[in-house]
């Protein structure tokens, strides 16, 4: 029995408002744009599982509010997350500066294992581009970020993005949060299970 699903990993999508955070998540989880039945979406955070390199990775993607008034409250969203997708709009320079700010914050306050991806969205509107691809690419190289330019509209590189993140995630096992004392028995059992598993593995070896 498993109390914490082994490969569940939380991903936060950060970025300025109107950058296309929600549609990116929608595109990945439903592989459709605009035509999907919205009744199934909205309240639920988006979930999808991916099979990469002989392991199943189960994503739960958390959409966040990007308005300036809520920026100070972002830690509530991104705590315990394994990866952060920071989105900017390639047709808005302001959103790229905002993304840079997010990268700094995640580097400071995020976990050491945190996978950060910088995403330039709306690549289908190449005519109105304000942020050059080279600039963003160099910035991503400096800071060890995954970098891609995606289009939630056409679906370009959206799948690639999540596959890359799945590959980059450090361990298969989900991180067990520290403050589990509130739950009856669950901690002790899951820990006991881990111990048993380890024992079994040792025996096998």
């Amino acid at each position: 029995m498993t109390f914490v699903t082994p490969n569940a990993s939380k991903i936060v999508i950060l970025g300025d408002s109107g950058v296309g955070k929600t549609s990116l998540a929608l595109r990945f989880t439903h592989n459709e744009f605009h035509d999907l039945e919205l009744s199934t979406v909205g309240a639920k955070c988006f979930t999808k599982s991916v099979h990469v390199a002989d392991k199943d990775v189960h994503f739960s993607i958390w959409d966040t509010a990007g308005q300036e008034r809520f920026q100070s409250l972002a830690p509530i969203y991104y705590r315990n997350s394994r990866a952060a997708i920071i989105v900017y709009d390639i047709t808005q320079k302001k959103s790229f500066h905002e993304a840079e700010r997010w990268v700094d914050e995640m580097k400071r306050h995020g976990d050491e294992d945190l996978v950060i991806a910088l995403i330039g969205n709306k690549s289908d509107l190449n005519e109105y581009r304000e942020v050059k691809m080279k600039v963003a690419q160099e910035y991503a190289l400096k800071n060890n970020l995954i970098f891609l330019e995606t289009s939630a509209k056409t679906g370009e590189h959206v799948e690639d993005l999540f596959m890359k993140i799945a590959e980059m995630l450090p361990s298969v096992h989900a991180k067990i949060p520290e403050n589990l004392d509130h739950n009856f028995g669950i901690v002790s059992i899951s820990k006991l299970e881990e111990k048993e598993k380890r024992k079994e593995k040792k025996n096998c070896c």
Partner: peptide, 8 residues
């Protein structure tokens, strides 16, 4: 369907 209702 044109509007995505997200956290924003």
């Amino acid at each position: 369907s044109y509007y995505e209702i997200g956290a924003d």
